[in-house]
Computed example of a mutant assay.
Amino acid sequence: MTGEADKTALDMVYAASTETELAAAYAAWANSYDTETAALGYCLPFVIAAWVARHVAKGALPLLDAGCGTGLSGPYLRALGYDEIEGLDLSDEMLDLARARGGYTALTRAALGGPLPWANGHFAAAFSTGVFTAGHAPASSLDELARITRPGGFVIFTVRDVVLEAGGFRPKFAALELARKWRPVEESPPFRAFAVAEPEVLVQAFVFEVL
């Protein structure tokens, strides 16, 4: 059963309507984020490795963890042979925890939805989980993720069911395909983001190859 503290933290995050509010919500949650989300069975930072390993060649570098949070994904992808992983997040507090975890070669404070500080085609792949959800990064973030991923590379991410249509993600997918920026490779069926609690929180995983 979800505890009151867990619900308060989640409510603060989902209720955020600006980048400043979202950063403040994650700053307040940072120190207890890992233990509380683990208790809820939050699995996205780990299951994303399955899609990365399926589509991205072992040893491809560098990769970008876009919205890396406390850095849960990095160490597991390094164990799978991805030795150069960079991370970005809008929360300094989250980045401090990711840095201490040691799975990343570089960490950058940046917000998805705006310009990103990398050249065209810098990354072999970009992946993101738990970021495209209510009150978080907009569908327009995908323009920059496609730009900074090299041709033949992949953009891999999850989208919460409640924003997939309402947040304009489907039209953005189609617009980038029409503009010959990427092509669709894989779309998962909806699945639970939390293995223990929050059964109504469903996401889908998407894989696009950059052209």
Rank of each mutant, 00 (worst) to 15 (best):
residue 42 Y to I: 03
residue 20 T to R: 12
residue 43 C to F: 03
residue 37 T to K: 02
residue 50 A to P: 00
residue 33 Y to F: 07
residue 46 F to T: 11
residue 43 C to E: 09
residue 24 A to N: 13
residue 42 Y to K: 05
residue 57 A to E: 15
residue 43 C to M: 07
residue 47 V to E: 01
residue 18 T to I: 04
residue 31 N to T: 10
residue 47 V to Y: 02
residue 38 A to L: 08
residue 56 V to I: 11
residue 25 A to N: 11
residue 18 T to H: 07
residue 26 Y to T: 08
residue 38 A to S: 14
residue 54 R to Q: 14
residue 55 H to C: 08
residue 33 Y to P: 04
residue 58 K to Q: 14
residue 48 I to W: 03
residue 35 T to C: 13
residue 29 W to P: 00
residue 27 A to R: 09
residue 43 C to D: 10
residue 55 H to N: 12
residue 30 A to E: 07
residue 35 T to D: 14
residue 38 A to R: 12
residue 54 R to G: 10
residue 27 A to T: 11
residue 44 L to H: 06
residue 45 P to R: 07
residue 27 A to D: 15
residue 35 T to E: 15
residue 32 S to Q: 15
residue 20 T to D: 14
residue 48 I to K: 00
residue 38 A to H: 14
residue 23 A to F: 08
residue 25 A to P: 05
residue 30 A to Y: 05
residue 58 K to N: 06
residue 34 D to V: 01
residue 38 A to I: 04
residue 19 E to K: 14
residue 18 T to V: 03
residue 57 A to V: 07
residue 29 W to F: 12
residue 34 D to L: 00
residue 46 F to V: 09
residue 24 A to G: 04
residue 45 P to H: 13
residue 52 V to F: 01
residue 38 A to V: 02
residue 31 N to K: 07
residue 50 A to T: 13
residue 44 L to M: 12
residue 28 A to W: 01
residue 18 T to P: 02
residue 46 F to I: 05
residue 43 C to N: 13
residue 49 A to V: 11
residue 22 L to A: 03
residue 26 Y to S: 00
residue 45 P to A: 13
residue 37 T to C: 08
residue 46 F to P: 00
residue 30 A to P: 04
residue 49 A to C: 15
residue 41 G to F: 08
residue 35 T to K: 14
residue 56 V to A: 07
residue 18 T to M: 04
residue 35 T to M: 06
residue 25 A to V: 09
residue 24 A to V: 06
residue 28 A to Y: 04
residue 22 L to S: 10
residue 54 R to W: 05
residue 40 L to Q: 14
residue 35 T to G: 12
residue 28 A to K: 06
residue 38 A to W: 01
residue 46 F to Q: 11
residue 51 W to D: 14
residue 47 V to K: 05
residue 55 H to Y: 15
residue 41 G to M: 09
residue 32 S to P: 10
residue 34 D to C: 00
